[in-house]
Design a protein around this nucleic acid. Structure first.
Length: 116
DNA sequence: GGCGTGACCCCAT
DNA sequence: TATGGGGCCACGC
């Protein structure tokens, strides 16, 4: 149709902006929110992010609770999360379920099947 | 046009 | 609780 709204990357950024402070999400969750399995591409999008201050990519952690990677280093990422109120211990997020942010379902995927 | 890479995820041991 | 192996997708060269 008209256009795909740019790139898959931009959609990830849009979701990141919807994450409030004190909350975090996972790469897989973002891919899920986009109804895709491109968890790998999500990470690539973060790595491609040049606006660390505009896009809170530091609020994205691994689904296993690990901090993950960061352009300024994982240590800096943990510090930012702690500064926002997220409990980080030994480079891992505590109670990830408690700080996990949930995204709304996509309008085109509402109601029926998801993956064929 | 095709191939390798990567801020990953899941399961089995 | 760690560790290893296999699989998935979008992007750049």
């Amino acid at each position: 149709m008209h256009s795909d709204n740019g790139n898959f990357h931009e959609r990830c950024y849009a979701l990141l902006k919807q994450i409030p402070a004190g909350k975090v999400t996972t790469y897989g969750e973002i891919a899920r929110a986009l109804n895709s399995r491109a968890y790998r591409a999500v990470g690539t999008a973060m790595a491609s992010n040049r606006q660390l201050f505009a896009i809170p990519c530091h609020r994205v952690v691994r689904s296993n609770g690990a901090i993950g990677g960061y352009a300024l280093g994982p240590d800096k990422k943990a510090e930012l999360l702690i500064n926002e109120g997220v409990t980080v211990k030994n480079g891992r997020v505590g109670q990830l379920d408690a700080v996990m942010h949930r995204f709304p379902a996509l309008p085109e995927s509402t109601g029926g099947k998801r993956y064929p």
